[in-house]
Amino acid sequence: MVSRLINSVEDWISSLNNSTLIIEDKRSEITVSGRIRVAYYYEGLEDKLSDEFNIKIHIYKDYPLTIPDIEELDGKIPKEFHMNDIFFCLGVPLEMLMYAKNHSIEQFLNRYLNSYLMSFMYYYKYGICPYGDRSHGSHGKLEHLKEYFQEQNDRMVFKLLKLTINEKVGRNEKCVCGSGKKYKRCHLNTIENLKMSIDKKELVSTYEELIRFVKNKNTA
């Protein structure tokens, strides 16, 4: 397991040019540290940006159950940009856990670290994230679930989330989202996918957090 993780990390490092990164195998984690040189071409925006970052990646050996933490050592990225204490806020936890479940660490770093650094470089130059960022806290989590279920409405997200946690619907019954389509042709896959990749406890706590958030929002 661990050797597969290290191989995948090595694959990732060898795909980068002009970067000097060192892998260390520690007791509960693998760390990758050094300078990473990145250049991005923004499709649709026709813009090229490049820069160098001094980073340290903590890859926990229970990946994909735990998401890697990444820090930047030169203080180039300010705390105001998406950061939790010292680590990058790569994305919404639920989304990352789901992605990690079906992807190697190489693919994970390619997607999330690249997106993060390129968003930062663009933000640094123009003051906005090129392809958007999530709202802070619970609001961002809700945004992600809306996108995931492709629903506009808060209530529908809760219905679908509840279904993921404990209800059963027959494949040929009508979907709870009200589309009129059979469940198997509608939300079945999205729900099964969520069920399989996320621990039930995590789903329940997300559900409760979001319910609280929406209630507060409505009373405020």
């Binding site: 040019n17 071409y41 499709e43 998406h82 806020c89 997607r111 090129p130 961002g140 992600h144």
Partner: peptide, 22 residues
């Protein structure tokens, strides 16, 4: 162009998020 350029677009990138903040 020796620099490796990574092409990004709205459907290949993820959105940063943070727990706390304004």
């Amino acid at each position: 162009n020796e620099e490796s350029i990574i092409s990004v677009s709205s459907n290949t990138s993820s959105k940063p998020w943070s727990r706390h903040g304004k």
